[in-house]
Design a protein around this nucleic acid. Structure first.
Lengths: 268, 268
DNA sequence: GAGTGGTCTAGACCACTGT
DNA sequence: CAGTGGTCTAGACCACTCC
């Protein structure tokens, strides 16, 4: 026989998915005590049932207020088209570049809506980074931390840690100055000022549970929501890795899109 | 002040991440009672701390045995290269095609290791599918359910739901016969028998918590592990959507790789 | 202040695993 | 069989939100 908390969870889930009166998205659920009474189980057991549905992302609890049926979140689309688009803009005049950046392109937000944090630091390459770049461990790297989030309260977008080889970018001192961010035209343009042309970009996508810090920063309220980790590796025309960035995105508000064109058959 | 269960969780987490003697990957933790004593908290509170770490994927509990520090799972790489590779094989002779399929290419498993389930069904297009294909709701579709998993115990790989327009594939009755799976050469080859050449494929990747059924089928033991959902849309050379498949993959054992080649600048 | 969810306790019994 | 984690109870107090 199924556990009591499971039966309660199953029943509640069914009500929510069916959208029954009082259980539609956004609706406020009865209190834990009331629910426990309704299912003839103790409050802790009812809490366990609710926890299951929170893990599934169906319910959000707000302390002091109540529990609510979660409404569907709009996903932000992140397309690989952004890379070619960014490259094309490198050779546009500055006033064109200034208008928007790639993040704004994906999110649909306008520039002024985005709060932009940047912290720059010179750090030695650890084992992972050394491997990513194919350089010796300890090689000086420029590490840049970005946090982009909407100024209108609760819509943080991504946490970015970007690595560049220090000696490469140091040729242009402006690139070492965090206060110059956001740089009009993005990373590809920054690299172009030190003679680097990006030739290809590899994205590797994984998912994992968020750390506590990431939950806070990305505003991941519900338990059980994962984050995407995108490792983006840029290779220049000489085959050298020029940038590696790790981008953490909220799993419930992001989707990735990739287009693969196939070669046509030649019919004889 | 932080909650007791949080302090216990923080301490345990730190021990595990530091790999301290007795807390390295695979190690068996002290029992809940022992841990509760050690931290001077009640057993339910200690269980709460353990639950936190299970959510983070650091600990796996086995009833009747004990709790263990989770060892890192090897991720299976799923690269978009598979699509061109699959297309190239369509025009190879049958004995070459028979050797391996695209799933085996990605996973590294040999064919005989893969258990292959297939269920075929004719269903009317629901709203989502009608939109995916750009056809009228109710259009007859062929729905195919696949479940690929290793015969050696606990390594299921993916759950696939694939849709095709029924009238298109019905031209070749073999395509309607589930007992013919696995079809040597894959879906692109199947489509080629009814005169369809796939021209481009769009992948859309999202992540969400698994359903109970998916947890069971994919062998997702630890709480808090998400699944990837890949929606793959194949478009033929006439611009028509010919296949849509939804692939569910375990989030802790999968990674996606996409390469984006950029156009070279023309220097004057 | 009333009502909500968050934390915590001290028990109890059961289901499962290994020996 | 002994020991483990899984479920469950009946309370208690606290932190938070809203009126």
């Amino acid at each position: 026989m199924a556990a009591k908390y499971e039966r309660a969870a199953d029943d509640l889930r069914a009500k929510i998915l069916a959208g029954i009166e009082g259980f539609e998205p956004g609706a406020r659920l009865p209190s834990e005590t009331q629910l426990a009474d309704a299912y003839n189980i103790s409050v802790p057991t009812m809490r366990e049932a609710i926890r299951v549905l929170r893990l599934e992302g169906l319910i959000i609890a707000k302390q002091g207020v109540g529990s609510f049926v979660r409404s569907e979140r709009r996903r932000i689309r992140r397309s690989a088209d952004r890379y070619q688009w960014e490259k094309d803009r490198v050779r546009e005049p500055e006033d064109v570049r200034k208008t928007t950046g790639a993040t704004e392109k994906d999110t649909g937000f306008e520039l002024p809506e985005l709060e932009f944090h940047a912290v720059f630091e010179e750090v030695p390459a650890d084992a992972q980074i050394a491997k990513d770049f194919g350089v010796a461990e300890g090689t000086p790297m420029l590490r840049r931390l970005y946090r982009t989030q909407s100024r209108n309260e609760d819509a943080p977008v991504s946490l970015v840690t970007s690595y560049l080889v220090y000696d490469v970018v140091a040729q242009n001192p402006d690139l070492l100055d965090a206060s110059r961010e956001p740089w009009p035209g993005g990373t590809q343009h920054q690299l172009s000022t030190v003679g680097v042309e990006v030739d290809s970009i590899e994205d590797v996508i994984t998912t994992r549970p968020p750390t506590q810090q990431e939950s806070d920063q990305l505003g991941i309220n519900p338990v059980g929501v994962a984050v995407f980790v995108l490792r983006k590796t840029s290779v220049d025309t000489t085959g050298r890795v020029v940038e590696v960035s790790y981008v953490v995105l909220p799993g419930d508000r992001t989707e990735f899109v990739y287009q693969t064109k196939l070669k046509r058959w030649e019919w004889e």
